[in-house]
């Protein structure tokens, strides 16, 4: 019997295409148009060619923000991934405590970014905040609004507090999918705890950990609200990351041309990294499926 081909299902994709068109493609095209022009408002534009791209590529301010951004993403990944694995390994595998742990782990993820920023802004204040007041009482000179190192520690701590549980939950899901037979075989072979982790748990978590690293990297590379609410990018420009700098340029200074050129380069970097991670992840899936 010949199969009938019905292509009408493609019509169901139309609403999604319309949403993508208006939410992504048209704004992106507009940004490209802005990036080669200059404007002083009133929708009047002057041709600038590639000048804004040249300016951004040689801007010390953007180089500084990029350096801080890479350092921030590197630090939080170096903390959150191992910490998340340790938390996942410490969580109970069965019983009533499993649900309690899962709910507790999910709580920070449910809090909106600006609320997280506000929570840590208050916590860190030396006059009324628990962390700031306690540290000051212990004789530690802590002030995240005036000291760059203190601001960095607070921003990193805030991110670790907010997102480590995501890595932990993903790692926990990976651990729960390991069949018991693996552990039994390891027990028969008298494998040490480290070897069980190194040769059974870690390889089995590879897929979910890649997803966790991808998600955390992308999110931290685009971070805006939390440092903006907590430090406003300060003191000075010590916690001004790429998106904070971009918003200052686009909305604060109304430099739409340079901001558009900056956005395109930012977008290209994120697109490249996403593609690399996507390729790695699909290859892992193929290898595991073999």
């Amino acid at each position: 019997m010949e199969k009938t081909q019905n292509n009408r299902a493609w019509l169901l994709l139309l609403p999604m295409l319309a949403v993508v068109l208006f939410s992504a493609i048209i704004p992106l095209m507009t940004v490209v148009n802005y990036s080669v022009q200059d404007t002083f408002g009133q929708n009047v534009f002057f041709w600038a060619g590639l000048d804004w791209f040249r300016e951004i590529l040689s801007s010390d301010r953007v180089h500084g923000a990029l350096g801080r951004q890479i350092m921030f993403s590197g630090i939080i990944l170096a903390i959150e991934v191992p910490l998340g694995i340790i938390v996942a390994l410490s969580m109970p595998k069965r019983g009533a405590w499993v649900s309690v742990c899962l709910v507790l782990m999910s709580l920070p993820l449910l809090i909106p970014w600006n609320v997280v920023g506000t929570i840590w802004q208050i916590l860190g204040r030396p006059d009324i905040g628990l962390v700031g007041y306690t540290l000051d009482s212990l004789g530690i000179d802590y002030n995240y609004t005036q000291d760059a190192l203190d601001a960095w520690i607070t921003v990193v701590l805030m991110d670790v507090w907010h997102w480590t549980s995501l890595v932990a939950l993903l790692a926990y899901a990976g651990l729960r999918s390991i069949p018991n037979a693996y552990y039994q075989a390891a027990k028969i072979d008298q494998a040490s705890r480290w070897k069980v982790f190194r040769y059974i748990e870690l390889p089995k978590m590879r897929g979910v950990l890649t997803i966790a690293i991808l998600l955390r990297f992308m999110d931290s590379f685009k971070i805006y609200t939390e440092p903006f609410v907590l430090t406003g990018g300060g003191p000075g420009s010590s916690t001004t990351f790429l998106s904070v700098d971009l918003v200052k340029m686009a909305i604060g200074q109304f430099d739409l041309g340079p901001a558009a050129a900056f956005s395109i380069m930012y977008f290209l970097v994120i697109l490249l990294i996403s593609w690399v991670f996507y390729t790695v992840m699909t290859n892992i899936d193929k290898q595991e499926g073999m």
């Binding site: 048209i26 507009t30 148009n33 022009q37």
Partner: peptide, 15 residues
């Protein structure tokens, strides 16, 4: 489409 600030070079690029 005026608000999108089109120019000929960008139009050619997208085309």
């Amino acid at each position: 489409m005026e608000w999108m600030a089109w120019t000929w070079p960008t139009a050619i690029f997208f085309l």
